[in-house]
Each structure stands twice: as structure tokens, then as C-alpha cells.
Simulated scan of single mutants.
Amino acid sequence: MKKWVVAVIVLIALMCGAFWGMADKDLRRLVLNMPTDINVLFWDTAQRDAVFRTMDWVPLLSKSRIIEAGDTPYPLPEGSPLELDTNVDAFMESQRAAALIIVQDGKVRLERYGLEFGPEGRWTSFSVAKSFTSTLVGAALKDGYIDSLEDKVSAYIPDLRGSAYDNVTIWQLLTMTSGVAWNEDYADPQSDVALFNAHKADSGVDVTVSYMRQLKAEASPGAKWVYKTGETNLIGVLVSSATGKPLADYLSEKVWKPFGMEQDASWLLGSTGHEVSGCCVQASTRDFARFGLFLLGGGMIDGESVLPDGWISQATSKQVDIDKPGQGYGYQWWTLDDGAFMAKGIFGQAIFIDPKRNLVIASNGNWPQASDRQGATHGEERLAFFRQVQQAVDRESEP
């Protein structure tokens, strides 16, 4: 890379660092490991370590929009340490974890950090953002911007008319049962998930809509579940179209400010200026945990839920089968048959919520591979750890 390019990058990083209050060590890490390719799926480990904590500063990536926090943070008091039958340090090392927070009965029972990350930093969410986006669908329903989940998607996104999405409902988008063909292989540079963000949009059309409307159906709407990040991006376009508000602003209005998130967050934008709603909310791990508490508490703000009656129960229970015993998929939430549910993102991001145990676990990291689909077992190991946390809580309640 030419020296003048490095100098410009350093200047931009310093300016952004001053704005966000980023530590000098993170600036140095970013400059030394600045990726030259926009596609995160094919960065090396050092690049991911640097950028996951600075995603909204990287010149190669698109701009971001601020999700403003309020003035009074939701309290996270310290509780007694949770006695776990596992070596937490070894677990975090194996996971390449940047952060792990366990909140039970509203108190922090465990909080650890790694990869030279800390509570003041903000880590990217990847697909954890999908669950934020689906929650905004619920808010838009409650506010009257969306009439029904049975409405056709094309009624809110006219540029989809005449495509395979013409007869797909909002419910089918939320549950990823549109029947439209899609390849989510993170290891394949020719997969849809690797290509769609770099797509050159048709003139005057949102980049996601431009890409998605060229896809073909492989099944009738509602007949087949296939995980599709691009469809969550469509949901974000739909919510913004219905509300007339950017997603970041709507999330700030409905959750981030009134619930009491401690730090401003940010949401990356696609090339045509819309939030990449299937990905890429940068927030502190404590605020990810607070989002779990928001759901755990029924979405209540000042004594009233910002979500429709029954929304959380529907969104976080199995709506479709995913061919994994004991698991399912709701409205952009991964569901477990014991009543717990999760938001999950590639490379190790998660929010685990267990209403029965009044439990929230937020974790961030940088796995060596994007997901267990590439033959790794980091996701299985993480779920096993979450189960051990559940067991530890159960032991405390035994007489």
C-alpha cells in the first residue's frame, strides 16, 4: 500500500478515534491491519481482530449512522459470582472471545474481556442485528406503520413488484420461508452472501432490493426454510419505507434512548445509504446485554410495551423447523425447545435469553471460521457453555 494512502488512513483513524474516544492501541492495530478487500468473510484473523472493534471507521467500508443513547443508563448492578463447573478462561481462549457478560435476575454475575477489548469498546454484531431488525417490525406494527404480517412485501417495497418476492408476505420474510433461492455459504466467494453487498445497484433502487429482485424462486412461499441474510436487509428497507425513518433513528427512538443504553451505537450503511439491517450494529457488549434485558422484560418503556401484545412470545418461539433437534427459527431469532432463544452472528457474536431463569448472556469474539458450517465446532461449544450457565443457576435454586 502506498505511503500516502497509509497517511490518509492514519489521519482518518485519528479523527474518528478522537470522535469515539478510541484508545491509541486500537488505532495502531487498525492501521497495521487495515484490510484492502471489502469482504469481511475473507479477511485474516489479525484483520478481523482489528476491524471488529472499529468497523465503522474503515475507509473501505461504507458510512454508518449513529444510534443515539439516552442520558440515564439502565443499571447493571454487580451480583454475586456465579459458580460454574467449567474453566471460563479456557472457554474464552478457545472461543477467541472479546467479551462475555452473564446477567441473571438483573445483576451481573460474570463479566470478562479478551483480545485486548474492554467495556468501553464497541464490537460489531454481525447477524445479531437481525433480531434488532425484527424487533423494529414489531414496533412498526404497534405504531400502525405496518398493517399486518400477512401484507405482501411488495406493497411496502414497490421495486420488488414483478420479482420472485411479489407474493411473499412479511411473515415469510421474518421466518425466511420466501421460497426464493439463496446461497449463504460463507466460504464461497461466489455465494449470494459474499456478493450481494458489493452489487452495483440499479439506478434509483436500494442496493439490496436491486440484488434480491433478480433472484429466482425454488419453492412456493412458506414451503421451505433457508437462511438468507439478504432477506433481513429487505426487512430493514421495508421498515424504513413504512415508518419514513432510518432504522438507526427508529431503534434509538423505540429502544436505545428510552430503555437506557449506555453508549451511542452505530449501524453500517449499504452503498445506497440504507442500514445493512442483516448485520453490523456496533455497540458495547453491556448494551447488547441490555437489549436482552429489554426483551426479557417484555419490551417495556415507562410501563408500556413498545411491541404488540404477544409479539415477543411469537417472535422467540419456533415458527419453522430448521432440521436441528430441539431448535427452530422464529422472527429472526434462533429458538430452543426449553424456551430460551438466541440472536447469533458469524465469528462468535450472540445474545442468549432464558426467560425461565431470568438470564441474559452476551458474548462477542472472533472465531477462526465464520460459523460451524465450515466444519468447526465453536457454536456447539458456546451453546454447551450456555447450558452450563443454566445448570449453575438451577443449582442455586435447589433447596
Rank of each mutant, 00 (worst) to 15 (best):
K2A: 14
K3N: 15
K3G: 08
V8R: 08
I9H: 08
V10D: 13
L11K: 13
A13L: 05
F19P: 10
G21W: 02
L30A: 01
T36F: 15
D37M: 07
D37A: 10
N39S: 10
A46Y: 08
A50Q: 00
V51L: 11
F52L: 10
F52S: 01
M55R: 09
M55K: 06
D56G: 11
W57H: 13
V58N: 07
S62F: 14
S64F: 03
E78H: 12
D85T: 06
D85E: 13
D85H: 04
T86Y: 13
D89W: 07
F91V: 10
F91S: 06
M92I: 01
V103N: 04
V103M: 01
G106D: 05
L110W: 13
E116A: 07
F117R: 07
G118W: 14
P119M: 05
W123L: 11
F126G: 01
S127K: 00
L136Q: 01
A140M: 01
L141W: 04
K142E: 14
G144P: 15
D147K: 15
D147E: 15
D147A: 06
L149W: 12
K152G: 11
A155W: 07
Y156K: 00
I157M: 08
D159Y: 14
R161H: 10
S163F: 08
I170F: 10
I170S: 00
L173R: 02
L173M: 11
N183G: 08
E184L: 07
E184M: 03
D185T: 05
Y186T: 01
A187W: 13
L195S: 09
H199T: 01
H199L: 03
H199F: 15
K200G: 11
D202R: 06
S210I: 01
Y211Q: 03
M212G: 02
R213M: 08
A223Y: 03
W225N: 03
G230W: 10
G230P: 11
S240K: 00
A242S: 05
T243L: 13
T243G: 06
G244K: 02
S252M: 04
S252G: 08
K254G: 04
F259Y: 15
F259L: 00
E262Y: 02
L269T: 00
L269K: 02
G270K: 00
S271L: 07
T272S: 05
G273Y: 11
G273S: 04
H274E: 07
E275T: 12
A283P: 11
A283C: 05
D287H: 02
L296Y: 13
G297W: 05
G298T: 06
S305N: 06
D309T: 04
Q314F: 15
A315S: 09
S317V: 07
P325Q: 03
G326C: 04
Q332K: 11
T335K: 03
A340K: 02
K344T: 07
I346Y: 12
G348A: 00
A350T: 12
I351K: 02
I353M: 09
R357K: 09
L359T: 00
I361A: 00
W367E: 05
P368T: 04
Q369S: 11
D372P: 14
Q374T: 12
Q374H: 14
E380C: 15
E381C: 09
F386T: 01
Q390T: 01
